[in-house]
């Protein structure tokens, strides 16, 4: 499916979804409230069939005090991509877990939790995955500092 077709297909499922600008492939921003339902339908809708969660990560837009959670979906049936994103506030980053839809989300979400501090509701085992269990802070947040960090090059 072409980019605009995909976007309109998603908007048919979720009217509140708006296309995300400046992404090199079909991308939408969806509201957090009905996110899980949207994702479930994206996975199961016969025209869409996004059966693979390619990657999931977050972007810390510190200036706007929000974390943008990015889900890159892929369909091995129709061979198309879709980037779905949702924004959660930085200080209260809570997101429904996609673990029931794509098992891989369990670990991808653990990684995002580990590095960004997003809390996933309904996640069976939300622990740190890459860092030590007693690590303080969430390193990929832009305001993260610790004693060992060097200044970036000018």
């Amino acid at each position: 499916m072409e980019t605009h077709e995909l976007i309109s297909a998603v908007q048919a499922l979720e009217p509140a979804a708006v296309p995300r600008e400046k992404v090199d492939r079909a991308a939408v921003v969806a509201p957090v409230e009905r996110f899980l339902e949207l994702m479930a339908r994206l996975r199961d809708e016969p025209d869409l069939r996004f059966d693979m969660l390619c990657t999931h990560t977050a972007i810390d837009w510190i200036a706007e005090a929000r974390l943008e959670l990015v889900y890159c979906l892929y369909s091995t049936v129709h061979r198309h991509y879709l980037v779905v994103s949702a924004s959660v506030p930085r200080e209260a980053a809570v997101m429904p877990s996609m673990q029931a839809l794509w098992p891989i989300a369990e670990w991808q979400e653990r990684e995002v939790y580990d590095l960004f501090g997003v809390r996933y509701t309904g996640h069976p085992d939300l622990r740190r995955i890459l860092l030590d269990d007693d690590w303080q802070g969430f390193p990929l947040r832009k305001d993260y500092r610790d004693d060992f960090m060097l200044e970036g090059p000018k």
Partner: peptide, 22 residues
């Protein structure tokens, strides 16, 4: 690089290596 998100991937010997560049 102009503002925006780019996701590109290649097929390595082990699978899909993707780079999400913001």
């Amino acid at each position: 690089v102009p503002e925006g998100i780019t996701y590109s991937q290649v097929e390595t010997a082990r699978g899909v290596f993707g780079v999400l560049l913001v």
